[in-house]
Amino acid sequence: MADKITTHHRFLKKAEKDLVRMFKDGDFEAFRENYHHFIKMAPPETSLEEMFYEAMDALGEHDDVVDYSLMQLNKGSGDYETHMIELLKALSRQERYYEVINFSDHLMEEKLPQGFRIEIAAIRHQAKKAIDELQYRRSGDVDDAERSSQEDINLDEMSHQEILRMFSTFADEKDIRYKDFVLEQLENISDKDIVTFMLLYLKEIGYNKKVRHHKFDEPVEVVPADLPSLEEITLMKDVEPEVIDELESRAPQIVSEAALLMTSHAIFSYPKEPDFEAEELVEGYLQYILDLLNMNHPYTAGSDVYQWIDEMERLVTTSET
């Protein structure tokens, strides 16, 4: 009888709500204790597992994260990518960098989804960087470590996605040490998505001198500090929200793919704005996406808008990976 009571649907829902409340209140110790009780009664939703990982990170209990993620991976339970990423992050926080690299190298030999591969490459890069810096710090030569961390970057030996994620990480970290390296490489790289993150990095560190990039047919000079963020350009700020709002009622099954499509287009075109009004682009993307699904719809974009979207998608899908 006790088992039937504790596993009753309403009881589980109440326990789940209590966990969410503890997490939002920042009571991570109570969350941890109750979470371990909860998972003995029912498998947790992915959102609840993500809260667990965040709570354990806040408590600094990386051993628990390693044990839990390995247990879930061995059981084949929950979201594989989430557990693997959290395992690698926990190992990194424990400074078990060689294990991170070994795990990552084995994973990269498999056929992985693009986004997952990018995340793995970023964690591996940080582990390698941490090893280099630890070695040089022990030798007492930090300046040489900084120079070496850049000299060790051999773009010829890196895949397109590894390079892309590296420059994206530079932009996130706003580490000024990579300024000269990025400025030097900007003259040599024409890959539209990679150039975007190089410009965003220079913007994030406030670089206020003119730089030249070769993203479009002709070399273009810009001042990175004056550029908008990716979220501020028309396609992301004004177009994507309108398109997604409409698709949620017409074709909810395609919403995540549509958001990825528009984000990819924004990355490839940045910082150049399309030569169309936001309303024209909204109409164009709705027609383009719903045409792909062979769905009836009332949208009719101008041919030039439709062609621009189609050309952007061709660029994205034929880009080296």
Rank of each mutant, 00 (worst) to 15 (best):
T6D: 09
T6R: 13
H8P: 00
H8N: 12
H8T: 00
L19D: 10
D25E: 13
F31L: 12
Y35S: 05
M41P: 00
A55P: 07
D57T: 15
Y68P: 00
Y68E: 08
M71V: 00
M71Y: 11
Q72D: 04
D79V: 06
M84D: 03
K89E: 13
R93C: 08
E110Y: 11
P113W: 04
Y136E: 09
R137A: 14
R138E: 15
S139T: 07
V142R: 12
A145V: 03
I153N: 05
N154G: 01
E157D: 15
I163N: 13
L164E: 14
T169F: 08
K174G: 00
K174M: 12
I176K: 07
V182C: 01
L186K: 02
N188I: 00
S190P: 01
D193Q: 08
L200N: 04
L202S: 02
K203E: 05
K203M: 03
G206I: 03
R212S: 11
K215Y: 00
V222S: 13
V223H: 05
P224A: 00
K237P: 01
I244Y: 02
S249K: 10
R250L: 15
Q253L: 14
E257S: 13
L260K: 10
L260Q: 10
L260R: 09
L261R: 12
S264I: 00
I267T: 11
I267Q: 11
F268G: 00
S269D: 13
Y270Q: 07
E279D: 09
Y285W: 15
Q287W: 04
I289F: 03
Y299E: 04
S303R: 06
E311P: 01
E313R: 09
R314M: 12
T317I: 06
E320C: 03
